[in-house]
């Protein structure tokens, strides 16, 4: 469900679970972290994209519910942290084709990217405190990408934002008109990055990383998210959410 291929100089990583809006299972998230660190050593640019109607709906919450000891949620958080760390410490730029939606863990991935292309009607955000989950795991990278003030309001407000607001905040680098245009535009952007001489871009990225407040390996966000998993409050809210979701789906 994670497909990674080297196409010319571009390392393509595809989230391929379109029937579940590319929701990440613990296995997928672990594979994603591996794929990023592995391909970053071979390619001149990484391109992360999703199959189907949206880029990524976040963690697979059904998986989280099925493990009463919270091992699935913990493993998802660990792998998300590893993926973000691998994106930030990658020697080559990372482009994301974000079409349709990137929610919660999916939106967190944008914080690790260098360049994000989305469509105007895209839906982005972190509605996870409603499930008793803290989005702190993505705070260090998000704050590096869009600044501390914007990251604070994005992470504490569970509402979703559209393309224009995301562009204004710097979460998205460029917008295209329709979701179908996103992946082709991102592929062109990745080609352009890959065609630049590698030394200059590598040194610039390294230096920018050193100037950032939180280093790529900073675990403080992960620790904060892990600290609130497994509590009664979290499990209760998750149960409640999935029950209401199932009722809505059954009623259709």
């Amino acid at each position: 469900m994670i497909r990674s291929t080297l196409e010319g100089r571009v390392g393509r990583i595809l989230l391929d679970r379109p029937d579940q809006r590319n929701a990440l299972t613990p296995e997928m998230a672990a594979d994603l972290a591996m794929a990023v660190s592995h391909l970053a050593q071979k390619a001149s640019c990484l391109l992360l994209e999703g199959e189907g109607r949206v880029f990524c709906a976040g963690f697979d919450l059904e998986c989280c519910r099925r493990t009463p000891d919270n091992s699935a949620l913990r493993s998802l958080l660990e792998s998300l942290h590893k993926t973000l760390a691998a994106m930030r410490s990658s020697p080559v730029p990372v482009v994301i084709a974000c079409h349709g939606a990137a929610i919660a863990g999916g939106c967190a991935l944008l914080g690790g990217a260098d360049y994000v292309i989305a469509d105007r009607a895209v839906k982005l955000g972190y509605p996870v405190a409603l499930l008793g989950i803290s989005p702190a795991v993505s705070a260090p990278t998000l704050a590096n990408r869009i600044g501390g003030g914007a990251a604070r309001s994005r992470l504490l407000d569970p509402g979703l934002i559209g393309g224009h607001q995301a562009l204004q905040a710097g979460l998205v680098s460029a917008l295209v008109d329709s979701p179908e245009d996103v992946r082709p535009a991102a592929a062109r952007a990745a080609e352009r990055f890959a065609s630049q001489p590698g030394g200059g871009i590598r040194a610039t990225r390294d230096w920018l990383g050193k100037l950032e407040a939180a280093g790529a390996a900073d675990r403080s966000g992960l620790e904060a998210s892990l600290a609130v998993t497994g509590g009664e409050e979290g499990r209760g809210l998750l149960e409640q959410f999935l029950r209401s979701l199932n009722r809505r789906t059954a009623g259709r």
Partner: peptide, 17 residues
């Protein structure tokens, strides 16, 4: 949202900046 989740997120944001 969950009380503990909100609190943990805000605490971390305060530490980070």
């Amino acid at each position: 949202g969950g009380r503990l989740a909100l609190r943990a997120t805000k605490e971390l944001l305060n530490r980070l900046d």
